[in-house]
Amino acid sequence: MNLRDVGGLRAGGGITRERTLYRSGTLAHLADDGVAALSRLSLRRVVDLRDAAEVDANPSRLPAAVPVERVPLFLGSVTSFFAEDIGLEEMYRRIVDDSSDAVVRAVRAVVVDQPVLVHCTVGKDRTGVTVAVALSAAGVDRDEVVADYARTAALLPVERTRAVIDWLRAQHPGSTNLEQLVAGSPADVMERLLGRIDAEYGSARDYLLAHGLSDDEVVELGRVLVAR
């Protein structure tokens, strides 16, 4: 679900490399032909951003030889966001502020091995923020980063999404943010997140440096993701 190659995005005078960084939702429900198709991507690493409960409930189906790096990206459970009825902007703030070490670990995994696939359950929020920060730090044009994030809403399966919303609505009947949390990827939310990172740190590159990525790793991130 929601699998795509982030190659082909404008990056100043360059373009992001194809068959290098992929992003997706859960890999738990792949049929045999899906596993075979994934095998043909020749992945050298999968970065799983889900927490232990999500992984235990829905283990990934992967080609046997692909190493998986677990980088849980939330402090607390996914369901807590629905219980608190927070919006996407607050969720993303918590990711970049409270889970910065995990964001750096995930980006470092992209630097170390390619082709690499980064995923969570839907491939929208944890994956969306991580990939957006990585692409921004690599020098990808802001409008391209935001457009890649915003694509997700149109790629989610309609029937599955409606079933998830109905199930969660029964548990949280008063929620005002539920639909957006489940299926929204508004461009303006990502615009504001990246703008806030710029305002607080100077750039996505500086954000990663402030939280432990080295100068050499940031340079290498740009080299592996962008052809100039």
Rank of each mutant, 00 (worst) to 15 (best):
G7C: 15
G8T: 09
L9A: 00
G12S: 13
R17M: 11
R23M: 14
S24F: 04
D33A: 04
G34I: 03
G34N: 05
A37Q: 08
S39N: 07
L41W: 04
V46W: 08
D48A: 08
D48K: 06
L49T: 00
R50F: 01
A52E: 14
A53M: 10
E54W: 02
E54Q: 11
D56E: 15
A57I: 08
N58Q: 15
L62Q: 02
V68W: 10
E69S: 10
R70P: 01
F74A: 13
F74W: 05
G76I: 10
S80Y: 00
F81Q: 14
E84C: 13
D85Y: 00
E89W: 15
R93V: 15
I95Q: 02
D97S: 06
D98A: 07
S100C: 15
R105W: 04
D113G: 06
P115V: 07
V118C: 03
H119Y: 03
T121Y: 07
T121A: 15
V133G: 06
A134N: 06
L135G: 10
A137G: 03
G139W: 12
E144P: 08
V146H: 13
A153N: 09
A153C: 09
A154Q: 09
L156T: 01
R160P: 00
V164I: 12
D166S: 12
H172M: 11
L178P: 06
Q180R: 05
V182H: 01
A183Y: 03
D188M: 13
V189G: 15
V189K: 08
E191K: 07
D198K: 03
A199L: 13
A199R: 07
Y201R: 09
A204T: 14
D206P: 13
D206C: 03
L213M: 15
S214R: 15
D216Y: 01
E217H: 02
V218R: 11
G222V: 09
V224I: 11
V226G: 09
